[in-house]
């Protein structure tokens, strides 16, 4: 992955989030406070603007800038969580204008760890983690299989990650939330798809789209 691809991913994610913002807000209305789409759209819009106005010299710098932008523009739960994840991803990457699929995969996992450290959510709590964790697991598994591909397996790993995230999103429906605003609902949170997991899937789907050959 090079700087251009990193930017393309975030741009694609911004497009997907803009297109799905209403849907994300509707999901948040059911078990939260009706702002997840608005928050994510404000954040990724700001990321787009920040990246357009900056010339990051490395892949890591792209993600660090994106993460910092989310932290300072979003607020709410999703701002610090996604912001910290992207910042951790950026910081974990080796310096330079290009990183290989393995390093990127490790970075994604570093992002997950940062997010989990900040939010304290375990798998099954009906949060971002329920899409993010299966996505990085699937990424790693696919990479082991496709590491010899022309792009080092990035496209295949991203596709696998997106699919696993989608599966993870579906699996949030029957869960009872134990973190975030949805947890206030207790059993009434059961039967609803988690908004944050859904936006995580959009971001991994954007990765698959941006890396597709």
């Amino acid at each position: 992955m090079d700087v251009a691809l990193a930017k393309a991913w975030l741009d694609t994610a911004a497009d997907a989030i803009a297109a799905q913002a209403d849907q994300l807000t509707t999901l948040d209305a059911a078990i939260g406070d009706s702002d997840h789409g608005v928050n994510m759209n404000r954040g990724f819009g700001a990321v787009r603007t920040a990246l357009a106005g900056a010339a990051p010299d490395g892949v890591g710098a792209v993600f660090t800038l994106a993460g910092s932008t989310l932290v300072s523009k979003v607020g709410g739960a999703s701002g610090p969580l996604y912001g910290s994840a992207l910042r951790a991803l950026g910081k974990s990457l080796p310096e330079g204008p290009e990183v290989d699929a393995a390093a990127f995969g490790a970075g994604l996992r570093a992002g997950l760890e940062a997010l989990r450290k900040l939010g304290g959510a375990a798998p099954g709590d009906k949060t971002i983690v329920d899409a993010y964790l299966p996505a990085v697991d699937a990424y790693d598994a696919a990479l082991r299989q496709h590491g010899g591909d022309r792009d080092g397996g990035l496209a295949a790993a991203a596709r696998a990650a997106a699919e696993a995230a989608a599966e993870g999103v579906r699996a949030t429906v029957p869960l009872q939330a134990r973190k975030g605003r949805a947890s206030y609902l207790g059993e009434r949170s059961i039967g609803h798809q988690d908004p944050g997991a859904t936006s995580t899937w959009l971001i991994f789907q954007a990765l698959a789209d941006a890396t597709a050959p």
């Binding site: 059911a30 939260g32 406070d33 009706s34 608005v38 605003r181």
Partner: peptide
């Protein structure tokens, strides 16, 4: 909320939401 443009939940004409949150949770 102004951004969502529609109510956060629906309540029947004879219903109340007990233990509601201040964000329309």
């Amino acid at each position: 909320t102004p951004a969502a443009g529609r109510p956060g939940f629906e309540l029947g004409e004879d219903e109340m939401e007990v233990g509601v949150g201040i964000h329309g949770e």
